[in-house]
């Protein structure tokens, strides 16, 4: 299993040719209390870097971008009724969507855990 990160604070957990996308613990902390999540339709094709979902805190709306291209094969509909799950367990039950990868080589452009940790240090 491969774990990758984007500069927009999404994580990509790859299992076979399916990537689970969510936002990092840093991202949920920055957002604050999540009150609404809008998820894409299953079956939709998304391009890498395209807006795929929306997450809203009390204060503001933010986009969640698809870090990799592919087909949306599953979404975490439980978030619609329990958006606070994104705050409570971003890396686990707070995942947003699963994408069937179009091109695994796209993963190479993303950050490793060590790269992402180093990136976070530059933000403080």
């Amino acid at each position: 299993m491969t774990l990758k990160f984007t500069k927009d604070h999404e994580y990509v957990r790859v299992d076979g040719d399916v990537a689970t996308i969510g936002i990092t613990d840093y991202a949920q902390q920055q957002l604050g209390d999540v009150v609404f999540v809008e998820l894409p339709a299953v079956g939709k094709q998304v391009a890498a870097g395209a807006e795929a979902a929306v997450v809203e805190s009390v204060k503001a709306a933010s986009e969640v971008f698809a870090p990799v291209a592919g087909e949306i094969v599953e979404v975490n509909s439980a978030l619609e009724a329990a958006p606070a799950t994104v705050n409570e367990d971003p890396a686990g039950k707070g995942w947003f969507m699963k994408i069937r990868l179009k091109d695994k080589a796209e993963l190479d452009a993303l950050m490793s855990q060590a790269d992402y940790d180093a990136f976070l240090k530059t933000l403080d």
Binding site: G32, D33, K59
Partner: peptide, 12 residues
């Protein structure tokens, strides 16, 4: 201060 550690929902 926009929020303290407990967050906006709890403060509200």
């Amino acid at each position: 201060p926009v929020q303290y550690p407990t967050g906006i929902l709890t403060e509200h």
